[in-house]
Simulated scan of single mutants.
Amino acid sequence: METTPPGLPGLPENEFASKTTYLDTASHGLLPARTVEVLHRVIRETAEGRGSMPDWLAAVERARARYARIVRVSPDRVALGTAVAPQVSLVAGALPSGAEVLGADGDFSSLLNPFAMRADLKLRTVPLEELAGAVRPGTALVAVSAVQSADGRIADLDAIAGAARDHGARTLVDTTQAVGWLPLDAGAFDHTVCGGYKWLLNPRGVSFLTVPEDGGGLVPLQAGWIAGERPWESCYGTVDELARSARRFDTAPAFLPCLGAERSLSLLEEVGPEAIGVHNRALAERFRVGAAEAGHRPVPGDSAIVAVPGLGEAAERLTEAGVRASVRAGNLRVAFHLYNTAADVDRLLAVLPRP
């Protein structure tokens, strides 16, 4: 079996404090020490009456800028929210009655369900591998996850975006299971949406929506004072002038998660998504090879997420052995991120049930 480095070069020591063999980033990422520190500090300041909203809002803007650099767009194209589904609902709400939305069978509910909730839209799904070929005249939007949550399959985003352009359709890509290890250019799509609590290592309560420079036809129905061009002058009555940037689509930030997000994103910027992706994929491949040698049949691919059909019932046994994984769609699902090492893979393989 090929060997991999014991850890990711450039990762600061003592940044993570997991007490388990943690292989469940696809459910929730570990919080870095720097993130934990700022959360403790701000909670203490708030309890003592020393919190500063202007300082917190400045940190929110730094988080926006960090995320924008990671996905290679201008910060003016990034809107902040608290979860994926509410941001997807902005895209769903902007579609005309009767519009066709094309998605992948079994994709994540937070991406598909906002469209299903509009009875006047036509939601059509096909197998992921057939998505690009299923775009047709009259398709208004193609919505797909860059990486499938259930089994780690990676969508052919170039082909999908090309087919959408050829038919005049817009694109919405859910990057929740991708950004942080799979380098991509959000500017290649009309919209992307990302929950930050997985591969971006954010506390839960932060999400990011990217929009075209013209706003992509979205209506800022959730806009409050924070979405004003001058927020502190927009606190009372209606907002006279919405932000000229994607901030017009912001919801009021959950300060603790956003302050933690700014710190977590700083770590990802330091180490680099490209290096993280190489590291994660090498560990995932080490596991695929080892699992196959043990008689299992993991879902093939080059993803940091690996699903093994027929092993869902093994998750409880793994937990008892100190290995954290998850079960999705009946599969055992493991996920490898920057804090994992080859020793983690070998520990998993050692406790994996034999067929």
Rank of each mutant, 00 (worst) to 15 (best):
G312L: 03
E269R: 06
G49A: 11
A79P: 03
A85G: 11
T125W: 03
N340G: 03
L311V: 05
G7M: 07
A150T: 10
L90D: 01
E130A: 11
R124P: 01
A63R: 01
A58L: 11
A99V: 02
T46R: 12
D166F: 10
S27F: 04
H40Q: 14
E100C: 10
E37R: 15
A134Q: 09
S52C: 15
P353R: 08
I43E: 15
W56Y: 14
W225P: 02
G29W: 01
T341E: 12
G81K: 00
L265H: 04
E48Y: 10
D214W: 08
G312M: 09
D105A: 08
E274P: 05
Y339W: 15
T3P: 07
V38C: 11
A188D: 12
R324K: 13
H167D: 06
R333T: 15
T46G: 13
V88A: 02
D105F: 10
T171P: 00
R153L: 07
E48N: 11
V135F: 05
A116Y: 10
L221W: 15
A254E: 13
R324Y: 08
L102V: 03
P114R: 07
G237N: 14
L267Y: 05
L131G: 00
G187L: 04
S74M: 10
A178R: 02
A304E: 04
E48W: 03
A79M: 09
S18T: 12
A94H: 11
W199I: 03
A186Y: 03
S18E: 15
G106Q: 14
T210N: 08
S264D: 08
L242N: 12
L267I: 09
V239T: 12
N14F: 11
E13G: 14
P309E: 15
G106S: 12
W225L: 02
P355A: 11
V211S: 01
A164H: 00
R248N: 03
L172D: 00
G51M: 13
A119Y: 05
A335W: 00
A246I: 00
K19D: 15
T192A: 06
P253W: 03
E269C: 09
G237A: 13
A325I: 07
G312A: 02
A143R: 04
G310P: 08
L112Y: 02
G133H: 14
E45L: 10
L111H: 05
R153Q: 09
T82M: 07
V142F: 06
F336N: 01
A246C: 07
P220R: 06
V334N: 03
L23W: 01
V271T: 07
Q87E: 13
A291D: 02
S303Y: 06
A92T: 04
R333Y: 06
I154Q: 04
E130T: 08
H40M: 12
F287Y: 08
A223Y: 10
V239D: 06
L256T: 06
A321V: 11
S18Q: 15
D166H: 13
G205W: 01
T82Y: 04
V60F: 07
T139R: 03
G196L: 10
E48V: 04
A254K: 14
P257C: 12
P203E: 08
P273D: 01
T35P: 00
A291N: 00
L31Q: 09
D240T: 07
W225M: 05
R324D: 13
G51H: 13
P86L: 05
S74F: 08
F336Y: 14
A79N: 04
A284D: 03
A169Y: 02
E270M: 10
G98N: 13
A243K: 02
A116H: 15
